[in-house]
Amino acid sequence: MSGSHADVSKHVRAYVAVFIALAIGTIVTVAAAQVHIPHPMNYVVAMLIALFKASLVAAIFMHLKWERAANIWILLALCAVFFAALMLLPSLTTFDLPKQAQRIGAWG
C-alpha cells in the first residue's frame, strides 16, 4: 500500500467515520432485537447489519480499500467459496430428508 504522510492522514479521517458508523450499527443491531422480528427473519436482519459492519472493518481498518496485491484478493475469493461450502453443510444434512426425520435427534 502506498504510504506517504498525506495518504495516511487522509486515512485517519476515514477511521473516525468508520468508528461512528460502527457505533451506530451496534445501536441499530440492539434496537432491531428489541422490536421482536419473528424467527428466522431476526437472524437475517442481524446478519445483514453485521455483514455491513464487518465490511467496513475489512475495507478501512484492514486497508482492503487501498490494497492492490492480487494475492490477497485471490486468497479472499478462495476463502469465501470454501466458507460458503461450510455454511451449506447444515442445510445439506436436512433438506431432502422426510419431514419427520429433519429433527437432528431423530436420526442421531
Binding site: 461450502a85 461450510l86 453443510l89 445439506l92 444434512t93 437432528i104 435427534g105 436420526w107 442421531g108
Partner: peptide
C-alpha cells in the same frame, strides 16, 4: 443434556 448431532462431527471431520 443432548440436542447435539453426531453427524455434525462427521461433516466437520470429512471436510
Amino acid at each position: 443434556a443432548g440436542g447435539g448431532s453426531p453427524l455434525l462431527w462427521q461433516h466437520l471431520f470429512w471436510f
